[in-house]
């Protein structure tokens, strides 16, 4: 059968059921905001305990990753993320979940080629392109510093 592909694609995109974007954005805002507020509270707690700002920052990340790992292990995280969308994806919780979940899943293919090889299947690109961008920035910064 000959289908006019462009026309059909337009029709499908126009008539397809849309994601409830306003509702999704409100939920993402509330959950994402809450996670950041929790981060802020942890930051103040660690600073209050006389830990340096640099270490406190790292501890906030560590704490949020720990909570995410636990929620992922218990099978709760994805149920929150289903509603929160970008609200759990964008904070460091999303990064942590993207490392923990393939670890859980690919255990069945072994510790080395399963879990070990697949652990960065989603987070790998984030580290790769983030690091590369930082190296490019470093080169520019270094050249500016030396030449100017």
């Amino acid at each position: 059968m000959s289908v006019n592909k462009q026309k059909y694609k337009k029709y499908v995109e126009k008539s397809a059921k849309k994601s409830p974007i306003v509702k999704n954005c409100v939920k993402a805002f509330l959950v994402g905001g809450l996670i950041c507020a929790i981060g802020q509270a942890l930051m103040q707690l660690y600073m209050y305990l006389d830990i340096s700002e640099e270490v406190s920052k790292a501890l906030v990340s560590v704490s949020l990753i720990f909570i995410t790992a636990l929620l992922t292990g218990f099978g709760i995280f994805d149920n929150i993320a289903k509603h929160a969308g970008a609200g759990t994806l964008v904070p460091i919780t999303g990064f942590a979940n993207s490392v923990v979940s393939p670890a859980l899943d690919n255990k069945s293919e072994g510790w080395i080629m399963g879990l070990g090889a697949k652990i960065f299947i989603i987070a790998g690109p984030v580290i790769l392109y983030g690091t590369t961008a930082s190296v490019i920035y470093g080169v520019i910064y270094y050249l500016c510093k030396v030449l100017l």
């Binding site: 994805d78 289903k82 994806l89 979940n97 393939p102 899943d105 989603i122």
Partner: peptide
């Protein structure tokens, strides 16, 4: 995705 990966699915 892995089963425990948190993601939203579009209604389609």
């Amino acid at each position: 995705f892995p089963l425990e990966y948190g993601s939203q699915r579009p209604p389609t």
